[in-house]
Amino acid sequence: MWLISIRDLQFRRRRFSIAVAATALVFAMTLLMAGVSASLHNEPRRITDVIGADSWIVAKGTAGPFTAATVVPADAAAAIAAAPGVETADPLVILHSAMREPVDRDVNVIGYRIGGLGAPPLTAGRRPRAPGEVVADSLLGLELGDGLAAGGQQFEVVGIGDGITYYFGTATIFVPLEDAQAMGFSGKPLATTIVTAGRASSPPQGLDALGPAEVRADLERPLASGTQSIDFISVLLWFTAAGIIGSIIYLSALDRTRDFAVLKATGAPNRSLMIGLALQAIVLSVASAALAIVLAQVLAPAFPFSVEIPLRSYVYLFLIAASVGLVASLAGLRRAVGVDPALAFGGA
């Protein structure tokens, strides 16, 4: 009986095309939401990987270096480096600042010791060799040699990094430690954290040692409400898609009441009618999902946020879309099953 369903799709192709377009837009939004959510989850991992530390030494009681305003003496790094199990230890300053030139924009600032841990990966240029030099994320749209003013300091862009963001896609700049201390601590020899390669068996007195996982968890905490909101919107979008598909299938069932009555009167079992309608819903959903993937690719670059759609989201999209289609078609299925075959005997 699939023939009837396919022919009906062709017969009402305009209506189904509109439904596919609308549903695809909704599915594309869910993909973009999934991409934003994934991006928010990826940022903490990416920034901790960039720093590459095995442990992050912070003032005792501090939740994490990215969220707390506590400091440690920068010269504590020497003592920490001397501890058994520690290969190297370097002070790191982590700030949030405003870039004033060439445009006003919030930036994350990471100050690291030249040649030490925390050096940024590059897509162009080189790393800073002296104060006043900066590596900027490509998101800022700067070129090598451009000037940059932030936190009262003037910098020259000598390197470009890519995808180094955190705190909802805020771009990061990497500056020499001294410049960061000047920006955040009036030049005092302080650091937000001491990062180490290798781990000491116990942290120095008055300090805590955090692992990369704890740092990531600390960084994700402020994002929790944001990601929950996105997940909630995604659920609403699934319901919206289900509503569109459900209403189209229900309308189709309404339009075909007489057809169903005739089919029943000529001996078609209910099961055949249900399979036919369910097939329509699945075709509609899967076609929408396929179009949604294209739409998401087109829309993602225009989205004002980092969108990283995971591969599994595409797979899930098809599975969930088919499920949504089936669930959404229940009202239509119920309608088809409930049709009285005696209706076939009615006049025109």
Binding site: L3, F11, V262, K264, A265, T266, A344, F345, G346
Partner: peptide, 18 residues
């Protein structure tokens, strides 16, 4: 209904998409 009876309906009742 399927095997024993054939029905010719008043309004033809053909399926328009087929």
């Amino acid at each position: 209904r399927r095997a024993t009876v054939g029905v010719v309906f008043q309004a033809f009742n053909l399926i328009p998409s087929l």
